[in-house]
Amino acid sequence: MTATSLKRIAMLSLVALFGMGPLVLFIGNANASSHTTFQTNRKNAGTPKSSTVVVDPSTGVVISYGNSAITYSAPSAALATVGQALFLQNCASCHGTEANGVPANGTSGAYPNLVGVGPATIDFWIESGRMPAADPRAIQANRRVARLTHKQALAVAAWVNSLDPSYPDVPTPHLKNANVSDGAALFALNCAACHTIEGDGDALAASTYSPSLRNIPAFQVVEAIRTGPGNMPRFTGNLSDYQVRDIVKYVTTEIQHPQNTGGLGLGGLGPVAEGFVGLLLGVGLLALVGFWVGERQ
């Protein structure tokens, strides 16, 4: 290949570039198909689907939400004996043999009283791996791999519930007909203030934190919403089971598998990570190139 032909190739590519052919192509060929239909109805978070809330008149505790989006089932009472053994082995050193929060030789009030909290609460704490606690004095228990199996957790829940039967029971959400869009809107209104809109969680007051939602299974999302573990508020009659189901659908799809169409998600931290990338990778890399361009010869 001669130098002249090399030069010609170089010139041609430059001409092509200066012609800004690519740019003309975007504008000329791009297909801006707008699927947006113009309506004026305002729709925020799904239509209010009626759910008959049944409340225990003596305690004010919600018994059921009277619909089929989520099935709540009490753990089988037959498991209670196994559950008691498991409880004495794994839980009683803090919560006491009576599950009342008073350990042997301990004072009451140091540990939570579990009597009457309902099966869903017991199940959530055990199945999210937070209990039995790695460090009982920690301000907040971290999510870990569960120590007990699903059946063992249900057994413990069955025994504790047998001491003072209560609600809510262990839920099973049915996500087939869930509306992910309504779930997104409800998530933004009710959940994002603590867990962030990306579901990553963040630091809260007094060394507490809102946990990430990236690895939480669907039924535990329901348990957390309905029971309000730790510092999380309980969402009871103000969210119907239909709405909870929609939120669960959103969490288990878009939060846990976000559509990062634009490239690397940068950890969901948003502008902080973007700033670092822009300054270090953008300006930094360009300054390095600039070092090469402008270096004295």
Binding site: S34, H35, T37, Q39, R42, K43, N179, S181, A184, Q259
Partner: peptide, 15 residues
Amino acid sequence: LVTYHGSYLPLDGQR
């Protein structure tokens, strides 16, 4: 205000 019916489904139907 419009109702979104675009290709990103998790927003479908939101105002």
